[in-house]
């Protein structure tokens, strides 16, 4: 049973059968031959195995690509542990002394807005990426860049997508937080301002919180407080009370 005994026509018919693409009349005829002709059944089984083999091997090779990507990411456990082992004690002491010195300067200077911003700002964790449709593909593809901290690429991909969906709040929100994470609060503000105006938006509390942080970064305390007041997030309340102190 090798393929030289199968004509192209026969092969394509079997393939259509395996992909459920036969018409109902064709299917009846096909299944009849399957039952009566054992050689034919062997051929069909063999093609099935060949197609599965191709798919499985292709997947296997794809998995190795994924694996190499994991190994390349900087927060991989191995690099972490080797770094720990190579720490030089003298350097550690110098670093500690510097941290203590820097810390005392902070205490002497008191709480600045910058300090508060640094304390409260951590980029939005993003959405889990496990979706399929072609439409969402572009969105989640950019989400992968965003999560890797490559805000520039994420922004440019999302902005392309935004041209086709100018009124999508989720999209505007993530472009906004990506700009903020990329230290560009001036562009982030109008985007977050826009989405936080929509009470139906699922991430409205996050939007107000990040808008508040963006204003804080821009040293506009009045507006920062106003935005934070609208968010129910615990961090938002905590930051607000620190600002009011």
């Amino acid at each position: 049973m090798d393929l030289s005994h199968i004509t192209q026509e026969e092969f394509e018919k079997i393939e259509d059968y395996l992909n459920n693409q036969l018409s109902s009349a064709e299917l009846v005829a096909f299944e009849k031959s399957l039952k009566t002709d054992t050689d034919f059944k062997t051929k069909v089984d063999d093609i099935k195995t060949v197609l599965l083999g191709i798919e499985t091997q292709a997947l296997k090779e794809q998995l190795n690509v994924f694996h190499d990507e994991i190994a390349k990411t900087p927060n991989n456990t191995q690099t972490k542990s080797t770094k720990v082992h190579t720490i030089n004690w003298k350097r550690l002491l110098v670093a500690a002394a510097l941290i203590i010195a820097a810390g005392s300067i902070w205490i002497l200077k008191g709480n600045s807005n910058e300090h508060l911003y640094a304390k409260y700002f951590s980029p939005d964790p993003g959405l889990p990426t496990m979706m399929s449709s072609t439409d969402n593909y572009a969105f989640y593809d950019a989400m992968v860049n965003y999560k890797q901290g490559d805000y520039k690429t994420a922004i440019s991909k999302w902005e392309t997508l935004q041209k086709t969906k100018p009124n999508n709040d989720t999209l505007s929100y993530f472009i906004g937080v990506a700009y903020l994470a990329n230290k560009n609060e001036k562009i982030a503000i109008p985007l977050l301002e826009k989405v936080s105006k929509n009470p139906e938006f699922t991430l409205v509390n996050d939007a107000y919180y990040y808008l508040g942080l963006a204003y804080l970064k821009a040293e506009n305390i009045k507006k920062a407080k106003a935005s934070l007041q609208n968010s129910t997030i615990d961090n938002s309340k905590a930051l607000l009370s620190e600002l009011n102190d």
């Binding site: 997947l59 994924f66 959405l127 889990p128 496990m130 979706m131 399929s132």
Partner: peptide, 19 residues
């Protein structure tokens, strides 16, 4: 936002497999 992961995996969707 979510689409069934199972279907995405069966269709060899690159992002679903990767995640």
């Amino acid at each position: 936002l979510k689409l069934p992961l199972v279907e995405a995996l069966k269709a060899n969707d690159q992002l679903a497999l990767k995640s």
